[in-house]
C-alpha cells in the first residue's frame, strides 16, 4: 500500500458511492501546498486514513483524530495570511465534509 487510492480501496467496497476523486484531490493539493501548515494538514489526513486502512485505528479513534486536525486549523488560524486562511478553511471544510461526515459512515466496521 502506498497512496491514498490504495487506502480507500482497502476501506471501501468498489460499489460504495463515495467522492473518492474529490478526497484524493483535496489531500493531493493540500500536500503540494507551499504553505507548511496546509501541507501538514494534508499529510496528517493521509497518514490517519492509512493507519485506519491498516487497522491500527478504530473508526472512533479515526473520527477523534480527524476532528483534532480541524481543531489545529482553529489554533493556527490567526497566524495565517488572508490568502492562507481561505485555503486552510477550504481544506478543513473538505476534511469535515468528505472524511468526518461521509467516509466514516461508509467505512467497513
Amino acid at each position: 500500500m502506498s497512496g491514498i487510492s490504495e487506502f480507500l480501496d482497502t476501506l471501501l467496497d468498489e460499489t460504495v458511492d463515495f467522492a473518492r476523486d474529490e478526497l484524493k484531490v483535496l489531500v493531493k493539493e493540500a500536500k503540494n501546498d507551499n504553505r507548511v501548515f496546509i501541507k501538514h494538514m494534508g499529510d496528517l489526513t493521509e497518514e490517519f486514513i492509512k493507519l485506519r486502512a491498516l487497522g491500527q485505528l478504530t473508526n472512533d479513534e479515526f473520527e477523534e483524530l480527524m476532528e483534532d486536525v480541524v481543531d489545529l486549523n482553529k489554533m493556527q488560524f490567526h497566524k495565517l495570511s488572508v490568502q492562507a486562511k481561505a485555503r486552510a478553511e477550504r481544506v478543513a471544510n473538505g476534511i469535515r465534509d468528505l472524511v468526518i461526515n461521509s467516509l466514516l459512515s461508509l467505512i467497513k466496521a
Binding site: E47, L51, Q56, L57, E61
Partner: peptide
C-alpha cells in the same frame, strides 16, 4: 493502542 499513540502524538506535537 500503538496506532492511537502514533497518531495522537502527531496532533499534540503540532498543537
Amino acid at each position: 493502542t500503538i496506532g492511537y499513540c502514533i497518531a495522537k502524538w502527531k496532533i499534540l506535537e503540532t498543537a
